[in-house]
Amino acid sequence: MRVAYRMLGSVADAEDMVQEAFIRWMRADRAAVREPEAFLRRTLTRLCLDQLKSARRRREAYIGPWLPDPVVEEDEVEDVTLPLMLALERLSPLERAAFLLHDVFGLGFDEVAQTMERDPAACRQLAARARSHVRDARPRFQMERQRSLALAEAFFNASRNGDLQAFGAMLAADVTAHADGGGKRPAAIEVVVGFDAVMKQYAFIASRLRHTPSTLVRVGFVNGLPGFVSLEADGELQTTALEIEDGKIAAIYVVRNPDKLRHLH
């Protein structure tokens, strides 16, 4: 699941690929398989590479910003944070696979080459190209765990109760807000950029929520970023993840598409 989810950004698609890999394992002559882990990883990676082609076509027709399915943890255990997953979306499927297998999961290039059925030198080049594209997506400023979770809870309270002064004090000047509704729930159709634009958007949201408040379900790490799960006025869940730099919120990532939240129920 760890490999498949990071390849695809979708919990449901990752589960499907793991299931298909299991079916192929059950059909295989396992007595002839010298290294079961390598066999399964190779099978799964190839399935994911095929799946990425169709996933890319679906995302080209996606309504509004696309965000990966949220994975919520109690602790900051994600080795691939949400900004990095978004950067991976800009890579070719082969670059993505080479980078994940080598840089994230620690495989040597000989094993990466066997998994991808490519020459080791070609895999090394694919990973190097990927690395240059995703370098800026690596977290640069880490905040202590409890402080970051406290900031996430304060963000929820200020954004829901209309305390715009407290809300604005948390934001960086160049903050961005990304909302993934997938055309199934109301969400901004474009990324909202800049302090003034984000303040205006959340002032509108707070005015709408004044009489139909949302409920904080859980504070935790959403794809490696401090954030929370909330139950909104329409009875649906929502996740919010916050990218923090120098103690200020640099980016807000909200997933509202119910298809991406089913596994959280």
Results as ranks from 00 to 15, higher is better:
Ile205Gln: 13
Ala32Asn: 14
Gly9Leu: 11
Ala137Tyr: 00
Thr215Met: 11
Val112Trp: 08
Leu216Thr: 05
Phe195Ile: 00
Arg129Phe: 09
Asn223Val: 08
Met116Leu: 11
Val175Cys: 00
Gln114Asp: 15
Leu47Pro: 03
Asn157Lys: 15
Leu151Val: 00
Tyr62Pro: 14
Arg145Asn: 03
Pro93Met: 01
Cys48Phe: 09
Gly183Asp: 00
Phe204Pro: 08
Gln51Tyr: 13
Arg131Asn: 13
Leu101Asp: 01
His178Trp: 15
Trp25Glu: 10
Asp119Phe: 04
Glu78Gln: 11
Arg138Asp: 14
Leu164Ser: 06
Arg6Tyr: 15
Leu82His: 08
Asp50Cys: 05
Val3Tyr: 13
Gly227Gln: 02
Ser207Asn: 10
Ala113Glu: 12
Gly9Ser: 07
Arg256Leu: 12
Ala61Val: 10
Val192Lys: 01
Glu74Trp: 07
Phe105Leu: 15
Ala197Arg: 04
His263Met: 09
Ser207Met: 12
His211Ile: 11
Ser92Glu: 04
Asp196Met: 05
Gly64Lys: 04
Ala4Gln: 10
Glu111Ala: 11
Leu40Arg: 11
Pro93Ala: 06
Arg124Ser: 02
Ala97Leu: 09
Pro70Cys: 11
Ile23His: 15
Glu76Pro: 06
Val77Asn: 05
Asp13Glu: 14
Leu216Tyr: 04
Val18Met: 04
Gln201Leu: 13
Gln238Asp: 06
Arg256Tyr: 12
Phe228His: 13
Met170Tyr: 00
Glu60Pro: 09
Leu88Gly: 03
Leu67Phe: 11
Ala241Asn: 09
Asp13Pro: 12
Glu20Asn: 12
Ser214Asn: 07
Met116Gln: 03
Pro83Asp: 02
Gly106Glu: 02
Asn223Met: 04
Asp234Asn: 08
Arg140Asn: 06
Arg160Cys: 14
Val11Gln: 11
Ser54His: 13
Leu86Lys: 12
Val255Ala: 07
Arg218Leu: 01
Pro36Thr: 15
Leu164Glu: 06
Gly182Pro: 01
Gln146Arg: 06
Leu82Ile: 10
Gly224Trp: 00
Glu190Phe: 08
Pro258Gln: 01
Ala197His: 06
Asp163His: 01
Leu47Lys: 02
Glu153Phe: 07
Arg96His: 05
Arg34Asn: 14
Arg46Gly: 11
Ser10Asp: 06
